[in-house]
Write a protein that binds this DNA or RNA. Structure first.
Length: 742
DNA sequence: ACGGCTTCGACT
DNA sequence: TAGTCGAAG
């Protein structure tokens, strides 16, 4: 009842038709012209090929790679061993068959499955350290991002838009002309494909893949299945991780499908199966409907399956849930979901937090200080990794906390989150964090209740977290300039405080005047000496001779144009919103025949190759047949080339550092498509990069202020926060005008 | 004593 | 904007 009220009030006030355009809170594009079309045709128009790839019990796999003797055994990853054996955060499929569930604690899991192996999450600074999982996720992304636009949806999931690659295969080597299929693709599950008793499932799948009378969409999906099985093999080969995948015409369906057959399998959702699939799908299984909205649908409308939604008109759903959500519901009931796959390989924020349940609650400023210091250290480390590896800078620091208050039975008040401009350097982050905390605490306790000190605090903090957001890329050119001037740009993540990027605050020199924590815009970056002596936010340059002063003094600011030229990929979205062509007549790039096993051509040495038509299941059979770690296997790829495959425990720590960088732009212009590297190019080109028309690396820093104004301005742009224009409408002429030159 | 920790998006 | 809230994995 109550959610609907809130939504009603919001959306009714914004009268029909006004808020229609743009992205709703559920990421749905409302398309007027599409709405006029009958359902079937609308769906038919969506001939994209989207995949969702989901790592199988990822944390477990990461631990099993570290300890290969755990492979194939019931295993779970736990954190914090203290309370009832620790909390399970990942459970292997062997353990799941014993009835072990993720919500259990270690002790329960031991009861349910006495043979289970419990591995602890690494701990650093007294808290869980997820870095090894993050890095492992990056390894996977670096493989998966090679055949199409790739969106890192979480630490262990990605979406891929494989439309272009699938279209290309269909044109050049359509499945119906292929004589051999990799075994893995024959293991696909095809929804709606009936496997009659006594029939060979693989043979049925093979026939489905190469039906010449299939619809265009089905053929595209078949190509998608080929690509995805290949990618999954590649992931296994490069990372030793298995994953599951869904291949469908949109993100929603792909996501649904990837969960249908786990682990290490893939599922295809042909158009013809969609209606039946949704008809029986419990409403709560749908992404975004697992929470209150789903409950509200059940209790208020009596909707139990997604298909049940079909009986409600769009208007009705809008009346209940608002315009955007209503339309979204109406669409998903029909299997329609226009969300784009965002080309984003890196996270948008970094956070570090810890809870202090019940008795552990922090009751003194000192203990809060201590833990904030730990959290800030970790955050700082990750910020510097990001800077090193991805040339990105975060601009906002936010503190979240939870606290309770005893006595004084004021109505319960939430601990407010607070944020301020982020200054690089552990000490500075720590200082700012505690100041933010104190500001929050004041609000939390209320004005009258400002008992500062003493042991008898009436408050306790049950969770703390710090996070860094508003991350922007520095183009490589800027990086080199920074290096020139500062000479302190960290080249390895160990040198932490070598670069301070200071966000200039117009007002007080630290967030201590908490009232002023907000409202400091506009702010700008300055490069500052790295002495960590204190809080220096002064607008004046430390070194007046520093040529950067001229730049940062030059103001004039961010133009919309420069935003559109940013390498963050935004400009591409403008184009992607254009209606799809029916056939990919032009602009096709060569994509290697997916059944071939060309090396990815990256950092990975030729140490590991797997036979082309070997299935993932076979991989494991082989693995268990020869357990010895670090064993070399000689296998032959489809081209008849002998290669060696090494399995088992490589020294995991080393391998992480090799990989933990991902998505660093390759410097390809759209023109220089080299067929040899086509896989990489197709994958990377969507990222959109290098707005520079000069090679900044070669510019003498001492004369930077003599440079052409465009260069200075661009440089300046990168020292300022992005201002996201509201006017990024599709087809706006300014967009096109400033797209990277062809 | 909420499973903990992390990330994202929409909304106001 | 900063801050809140919901959701997911």
């Amino acid at each position: 009842m109550s959610p609907k009220r809130a939504l009603d009030m919001v959306d009714n006030s914004s009268a029909y038709g006004i808020k229609h355009k743009g992205k709703s809170r559920l990421g749905v594009w409302r398309e007027k012209e599409a709405e006029a079309m009958p359902v079937v045709r609308r769906e038919t128009c969506d001939a994209r090929v989207i995949a969702h790839v989901d790592m199988d019990c990822f944390y477990v796999q990461v631990e099993q790679r570290k300890q290969p003797n755990l492979r194939g055994l019931p295993t779970a990853v736990i954190q914090y061993n203290s309370y009832k054996g620790g909390a399970l955060i990942a459970v292997s499929y062997e353990a799941r068959t014993c009835g072990v569930k993720r919500s259990m604690r270690g002790e329960e899991a031991k009861e349910a499955c006495p043979q289970i192996h419990l591995v602890q999450v690494p701990v650093a600074r007294g808290k869980a350290d997820l870095n090894s999982y993050r890095n492992a996720g990056s390894e996977v992304v670096s493989v998966l991002s090679q055949k199409g636009r790739c969106e890192r949806a979480s630490i262990d999931e990605v979406y891929l838009d494989l439309t272009l690659a699938a279209e290309t295969i269909l044109l050049e080597t359509p499945p119906e002309t292929m004589q051999d299929f990799a075994e893995e693709v024959l293991n696909s599950h095809v929804l709606g494909l009936e496997i009659k008793d006594g029939c060979d499932a693989k043979e049925e799948v093979r026939k489905w893949l190469c039906r010449s009378d299939a619809s265009y969409q089905d053929k595209l999906l078949a190509c998608g299945a080929l690509i995805v099985s290949d990618l999954r093999m590649q992931v296994l080969k490069e990372t030793e991780f298995t994953c599951s995948a869904g291949i469908a015409h949109n993100k929603m369906l792909a996501k649904l499908a990837s969960a249908m057959n786990k682990p290490a399998q893939q599922t295809v959702v042909p158009l013809s199966s969609v209606e039946g699939l949704l008809a029986s799908l419990p409403i709560k299984k749908m992404k975004h409907l697992g929470g209150k909205l789903g409950s509200s649908l059940q209790s208020d409308l009596g909707v139990n399956t997604v298909g049940d939604l079909l009986q409600f008109s769009e208007e009705k759903l809008q009346q209940w849930y608002g315009i955007n959500t209503g339309t979204w519901l109406w669409n998903i009931a029909r299997g329609i979901n226009g969300e784009e796959v965002e080309g984003r390989l890196l996270p948008k924020s970094h956070g570090s937090g810890k809870t202090f349940p019940g008795p552990q609650a922090l009751k003194t400023i000192d203990s809060v200080q201590h833990w904030l210091n730990q959290l800030c250290e970790e955050l700082n480390e990750r910020l510097h990794s990001d800077l090193d590896q991805n040339k990105r800078i975060a601009q906002t620091l936010t503190l979240h906390a939870r606290a309770y208050k005893t006595g004084d039975s004021d109505s319960y008040r939430k601990f407010p989150s607070k944020s301020c401009p982020l200054r690089y350097g552990t000490r500075k982050i720590q200082e700012d964090a505690i100041i933010l905390f104190q500001a929050g605490l004041r609000d939390f306790l209320g004005f009258h209740n400002c008992k500062a000190h003493g042991n008898e605090n009436n408050w306790g903090v049950t969770s703390l977290s710090v996070s860094a957001s508003k991350i922007v890329s520095i183009p490589s050119g800027t990086h080199s300039i920074v290096k020139y001037f500062g000479g302190k740009f960290p080249s390895s993540s160990t040198s932490n405080q070598s670069l301070d990027v200071v966000i200039d605050e117009a007002v007080p020199s630290s967030p201590s005047g908490s009232e002023n924590c907000s409202g400091l815009v506009p702010y700008e970056f300055q490069l500052q000496d790295h002495d960590d002596t204190g809080i220096k936010h002064s607008k004046a340059c430390l070194d007046p001779k520093d040529p950067l002063c001229h730049l940062s003094g030059k103001a004039d600011g961010l133009t919309e144009e420069s935003f559109l030229m940013s390498p963050s990929g935004n400009e591409d979205r403008m184009m992607l919103n254009e209606p799809r062509r029916n056939l990919p007549a032009k602009d096709l790039r060569r994509v290697s025949n997916i059944s071939s096993l060309k090396a990815v051509g990256k950092k990975k040495t030729a140490g590991k190759k797997l036979q082309g038509n070997c299935s993932i299941a076979n991989f494991f059979n082989n693995y268990h047949n020869s357990q010895s770690s670090l064993e070399q296997k000689n296998v032959t790829n489809v081209n008849g080339v002998k290669m060696s495959l090494s399995l088992g425990s490589k020294s995991s720590d080393d391998s992480y550092s090799t990989y933990n960088q991902v998505g660093v732009p390759a410097e390809h212009s759209h023109e220089e498509i080299d067929t040899n590297k086509s896989e990489c190019t197709v994958g990377n080109m969507q990222q959109g990069r290098q707005p520079w028309s000069y090679n900044v690396d070669e510019i003498d820093p001492s004369i930077i202020n003599e440079l052409p104004p465009e260069i200075q301005q661009e440089f300046q742009t990168w020292l300022r926060p992005h201002k996201r224009p509201n006017v990024g409408k599709r087809g706006s002429s300014i967009t096109h005008y400033f797209l990277p030159q062809k």
